[in-house]
Design a protein around this nucleic acid. Structure first.
Lengths: 344, 344
DNA sequence: TTGAAAGCGCTAACAA
DNA sequence: TTGTTAGCGCTTTCAA
């Protein structure tokens, strides 16, 4: 059988309280006693169990991370890394709840509610409703958002300004001389409102700000062969766009790759620009808008920790920078189109 | 203040035990009583706290996942998905411990040891030593490996046969007529022994089995510009290889992409083949060796659950299949080399 | 600096 | 079917 704190106490010839202190508040125990205790513990292969202390403290030392997708892709993976780095250190367990679809969502908000089961909940990249927030025990448990569109119900949040980011992309293209551009994005699964939706509307606004800029939206349904759908949307235009913005790098990368097979070269015939600066973007020279989810997550974790300790959070709702990373997939448009006669 | 089980009991006019039962064993409570209890709980915004029950049961309902890297890439992300799907369902929390480097490693094995803090530990893609396994409280806590090289200390394991997988790749190339091939891999961080090391030795063996097959190993240090190092290794050969195997898709993908910039076309001038069938492999038509980490993880989770329940595991150490996925990046070698005169 | 003892919030015998 | 009650393994007053 496993050694308990009492066994250690007996073996060391001290009280359980002393054993407890030797582990939790070593400074409150004389070095001699501490040594004895540690040695006894070592011999019995004993280590403090967290569950029990947790009970006493009323905290669970558990953080719930809600993600809107059961697949862990670049963004979510980065969030987990950033969160886990901080929370581990502070002795908190990060527990991941994929909230894909309405059922998982309902289940989560029925089961966990949260007081005593999590000391904070982090919501990544989708929006929770007022009602759901209340269900979590508002006023009890801080809710921290990462890239959530609305911060009404959030105790704190971090995120990027999607509209700003996409404007960067549009203006970069405009400065190069493009006046006819497209935006390719995956349509979202219904039931979850994603913050990055603002990128789509942001694209339209950014185009509207520029004289003579034409911006076309090309949605791709997740079921589609994304490339085929998108390329049809491009080539099918009377005057095809000379540049494409992508909602995320992960759509741009295969597109970039396959475009060459069609005889269209990047950036000579068409410029392309991604969003995220995620995996492979640098390797393949994709111009993109960088965001730093790892850093955002670390910040979110710090805010959560402050909130848990009931300490004030300096800057509860912070916006992280977004940056244009220019590489080789964007350039001036051809004076003479490959597909069309010169435009003027 | 937060409602406790006693508040609910009082409000519903029943005992705490009944409240407990109403949640944990609803069938042991009359529908009428259950309703009363649930209603009271609802009104008080009460929900069962897991920490307390856990104490009683002696289990922690926590599973530790040890990963050898603080970055969560495709493989690890898939493992987390697969594990979490099963464990969540069963009411277990999955807690991720990145064991990058010797320090983190020592810290983990000092702090957690594990009895009472985790009901099982899953080790992904690196090997733990006998001593570390013992530190975890051998005989107390099951240890399940995923793609670990040695299973000596493991209660159960899942994994692929790396040597088999890479042989598939080599034979595919051999069948196409290649007799001069290379293997590009990233050198590992010291301190962790990775199971996929067997792929490297497996490559050499697989080549040795084939008459006239020449196989060259090209290590790329993580700090290097992988592409430049590798391409130099290729082109620098007296007779450059006509095909390259990559240790993982994530090295092959940017290579595939950038190769075109060099004027070498795939698969005409050179065939390339990856390993994993991970993100983008299908999109870009990369021939590769598929493994299914999500499925492996799910299986590992089931084994862990059986072990926790002290039930027998039918097949404690199972090998998952690995499969050749032929796409467009491999073909017969040119009769006449682009770089060299015909070889015969 | 140490020990005795009272819980933390719940579960599970056992009794009714 | 329900209630009473004794802990689960630790932390933390309080007293010595």
């Amino acid at each position: 059988m496993k050694a308990s704190i009492d066994d250690v106490a007996a073996k060391a010839g001290v009280s359980t309280a002393t054993v407890s202190r030797a582990f939790s508040h070593p400074e409150k125990v004389s070095p001699k006693t501490r040594d004895k205790v540690l040695k006894a513990a070592e011999q019995l292969d004993f280590s403090i169990s967290r569950s029990a202390g947790v009970l006493k403290s009323g905290k669970s030392y558990r953080i719930a991370l809600l993600v809107g997708n059961s697949r862990i892709e670049w963004f979510t993976a980065s969030i987990i890394e950033g969160l886990n780095a901080i929370f581990r250190e502070a002795g908190y367990d990060l527990v991941i709840y994929p909230i894909a679809g309405v059922a998982a969502r309902a289940e989560f908000f029925d089961d966990l509610p949260v007081r005593g089961n999590a000391d904070a909940v982090i919501v990544s990249s989708f929006d929770i409703s007022q009602a759901e927030a209340e269900r979590l025990g508002t006023a009890h448990v801080p809710i921290i958002g990462i890239n959530c569109a609305t911060s009404r119900v959030l105790s704190a949040s971090v995120g990027i300004d999607d509209a700003y980011g996409i404007r960067l992309a549009v203006r970069h293209l405009a400065a190069l001389g493009h006046r006819n551009i497209a935006y390719v994005y995956k349509e979202f699964s219904p039931g979850l409102k994603f913050s990055s939706g603002k990128r789509i509307t942001g694209f339209a606004h950014a185009c509207a700000e520029i004289a003579g800029m034409k911006g076309k939206l090309i949605p791709v349904s997740p079921a589609d062969a994304a490339f085929d759908t998108a390329i049809s949307g491009i080539l099918g235009e009377k005057t095809p766009p000379t540049a494409i913005c992508f909602h995320q790098d992960s759509i741009a990368v295969p597109f970039f790759f396959r475009l060459r097979e069609t005889g269209i070269s990047v950036p000579e015939d068409i410029s392309i620009i991604g969003f995220d600066d995620s995996i492979f973007a640098r390797d393949i020279g994709l111009t993109t808008i960088r965001q730093l989810p790892r850093e955002m997550a670390a910040s979110a974790a710090h805010k959560a920790l402050s909130l848990i300790e009931k300490q004030p959070v300096e800057d509860p709702h912070s916006i992280f920078p977004t940056q244009l990373i220019i590489r080789n997939s964007t350039a001036r448009p051809r004076k003479t189109g490959k597909l069309l006669k010169p435009r003027n």
